Simulated assay, not measured.
Amino acid sequence: MTHEIPELARQLAPVKRPNPVLWLYHWRYELLAVTLLPYALVNLVLWLGPVWSVVAFVVAFNWVFYWRAARRHVRGRLRAIVVQHRLRTAFASARICTVDGRRPAILWTRPVDGDIVVSLFCPAGIGFDQIHSRREVLADACFATEIYVDRHPKYGALVTLTICAKTARREPGRAVSPGDVVPLRAHS
């Protein structure tokens, strides 16, 4: 009975919308692409001239397109950006929020060996157990087959999600139940 009342309050409370500064931070990559790309292209044309700027653009595109490591890096980075937006939406729809509607903050997202590793800061009221119990919803939102949830061994408010898009694999160091504490490879 004591755990049902905060959960009911969490389900009924509206999820807070981000303030304008936080909204700018959430959309930082897109805003930089919309503002800096045209600025860089105009300056490139002014500096090199129209013919050499086209040659430089074609060389840069071919370099990224034909070099496997660069292509993998760009694809992983773009996927990490998409995962951030999908996780924020999934947190709201799965009601992974505090009673007053605050969601976990995504500190950093990085591609690691085909997976996406997301570092989260959970405000008071959101814990490892709440995120771990809704892994399937988060996996569906991120087009992933499996999401591993690891808690930080020292700081209880830090949680790391490993989003796997490939077939699920079992590793011996992964926590099976929410009560197990497994030290993180990413933070050690």
Rank of each mutant, 00 (worst) to 15 (best):
138 L>W: 04
72 R>F: 06
100 D>S: 13
118 V>E: 00
80 A>D: 09
64 V>W: 08
139 A>P: 14
66 Y>W: 14
109 T>G: 07
106 I>L: 08
67 W>T: 15
144 A>G: 02
63 W>S: 15
129 D>K: 12
146 E>Q: 15
129 D>L: 10
89 T>S: 10
107 L>M: 08
85 H>C: 01
87 L>Q: 01
126 I>V: 15
104 P>E: 05
83 V>D: 00
148 Y>H: 14
121 F>H: 15
92 A>L: 01
76 G>V: 01
140 D>L: 15
106 I>G: 01
114 G>S: 13
98 T>K: 05
77 R>L: 11
70 A>Y: 10
149 V>R: 00
63 W>D: 12
112 V>F: 09
143 F>H: 15
121 F>W: 13
75 R>C: 00
126 I>E: 10
143 F>V: 09
150 D>R: 14
132 H>N: 10
139 A>W: 15
119 S>V: 12
110 R>W: 07
124 A>K: 09
95 R>L: 07
109 T>A: 14
100 D>H: 13
76 G>Q: 04
133 S>D: 13
71 R>Y: 00
80 A>N: 04
136 E>V: 12
151 R>F: 01
107 L>P: 02
118 V>G: 00
73 H>M: 11
131 I>N: 02
107 L>Q: 08
83 V>C: 00
135 R>Q: 11
141 A>H: 13
107 L>S: 09
121 F>T: 08
79 R>H: 11
148 Y>I: 12
79 R>S: 04
136 E>W: 14
150 D>Y: 15
123 P>E: 09
123 P>F: 05
111 P>R: 07
119 S>G: 08
117 V>Q: 06
104 P>D: 03
85 H>R: 07
116 I>W: 04
92 A>C: 00
142 C>W: 03
120 L>T: 01
152 H>Y: 08
107 L>I: 13
100 D>M: 07
127 G>D: 15
72 R>L: 11
115 D>G: 03
86 R>S: 09
102 R>W: 05
116 I>L: 01
77 R>F: 07
121 F>C: 10
84 Q>F: 03
150 D>W: 12
68 R>G: 03
129 D>W: 10
86 R>G: 02
84 Q>S: 06
93 S>M: 09
115 D>N: 12
100 D>R: 10
136 E>S: 14
147 I>M: 06
147 I>S: 04
99 V>L: 13
89 T>G: 08
82 V>F: 10
132 H>I: 02
88 R>Y: 11
139 A>V: 15
100 D>A: 07
116 I>V: 10
122 C>G: 04
105 A>N: 03
113 D>A: 14
145 T>N: 13
148 Y>M: 10
74 V>T: 05
71 R>K: 01
